[in-house]
Design a protein around this nucleic acid. Structure first.
Length: 326
DNA sequence: ATGGTTTTTACTGCGTC
DNA sequence: GACGCGGTAAAAACCAT
């Protein structure tokens, strides 16, 4: 479950991508406390920082099987159940599905009489499955979330989180007076930020059927009502995306993070838009590493004005100098 | 609504290829 | 002459009050 977690923000450069071989299915993240590497441990249901031991998430449920199978035949023999539950389907994937093939459990064709019966059952089952408005509501919203998430290239776990948020909004009766679309978009926006793979409101607006103002308004509302704790986006979380969109090296990414780090220590960053800071850091880093990109290129991928980049990157470089001046 | 802050828009001047 | 860059002033957007 924990393997499709947040996008991987490569921050290593010392250990030359060697020791990856052992646990390739564990995506690496960084610890919020000491920025060490996080390791997810499905058996204990925890995500732990290797350096400081901080347990980031507890009590995750491992929906996988408790047995191991070494080939397809064993898997067939040991498996007793269907697919794991998922928040991404409106009924968590738990409802009954009647197969479309007119075959019985042994694969034999059904008599015409039985076929008619099955057809009626299918109809009724479908009606019950999506009967009350809540379920239909959810169905539509989750579809939207899925659509927007893939348009924005957001990983599956973000969609799951968005689904959970939406579900809670629905349960707390936050929907009346607000559009399904709006709440769905707001949920996704919140989920992306929470997962450390933020997308700007502008980006959300591009894929949503709802106006920017409404998204922002609904987002604030949902966050307040559900008491979601979402810190302001960390500029660093935008860096990898910009770097890769501009096809720059790891080195640039490292420098950019470093610049943002010192800027943070100096407190230069408060009140400024995280996106602007990230863009400026990437630009400044590209200068420092002789992999120059133009301001307009950066402004393009970051959706930020060149003026802002200029202002910010001066401040970043000043902060850097002040540190060295000590 | 209001005022303070930040970002954007638009424009200008300078140096380089 | 086009392009990249820096700077500025005024407008627009944003946020807390």
């Amino acid at each position: 479950m924990t393997d499709t977690t947040t996008r991987r923000y490569a921050r290593e450069s010392e250990n030359e991508s060697e020791d990856e071989s052992e646990r390739t299915d564990d995506e690496t993240l960084t610890c919020p406390e000491c920025s060490g590497t996080l390791t997810s441990d499905a058996e204990h249901g925890e995500t732990v920082c290797e350096d400081c031991g901080l347990v980031v998430e507890e009590d995750e449920i491992d929906p996988g099987p408790e047995w191991r199978a070494f080939d397809a035949r064993e898997k067939d023999e040991k498996s007793r159940v269907g697919a794991p539950t998922t928040q991404m389907m409106h009924d968590k994937g738990l409802s009954t599905n009647i197969g479309w093939q007119d075959k019985d459990a042994y694969g034999n064709a059904l008599s015409s009489r039985q076929r008619e019966k099955m057809q009626r059952l299918r109809t009724w089952n479908e009606r019950f499955r999506t009967r009350d408005s809540r379920e239909r509501n959810l169905k539509q919203a989750l579809g939207e979330i899925d659509r927007m998430a893939s348009a924005l290239g957001l990983p599956e776990n973000v969609r799951e989180t968005a689904s959970v948020i939406y579900r809670r909004a629905l349960e707390d009766d936050l929907l009346p007076g607000r559009s399904i679309e709006g709440v769905a978009t707001a949920s996704l926006y919140a989920a992306a930020r929470k997962a450390g793979t933020p997308r700007s409101l502008d980006e959300l607006t591009q894929v949503s059927r709802v106006e920017k103002d409404e998204i922002a308004r609904t987002y604030r509302y949902v966050v307040r009502e559900l008491q979601l704790e979402i810190e302001p986006a960390d500029p660093e979380s935008y860096v990898p995306r910009f770097v890769s969109d501009l096809t720059l090296s790891e080195e640039v990414e490292r420098r950019a993070r470093q610049l943002l780090g010192t800027a943070k220590e100096q407190g230069v960053h408060s009140g400024k838009s995280p996106v602007g800071l990230a863009a400026a850091a990437v630009y400044a880093a590209s200068l420092l590493t002789n992999e120059k990109v133009t301001q307009s290129e950066v402004s393009e991928v970051a959706n930020i004005s060149e003026v802002t980049i200029r202002n910010r990157y001066h401040e970043l470089l000043e902060a850097e100098e002040d540190i060295h001046g000590l």
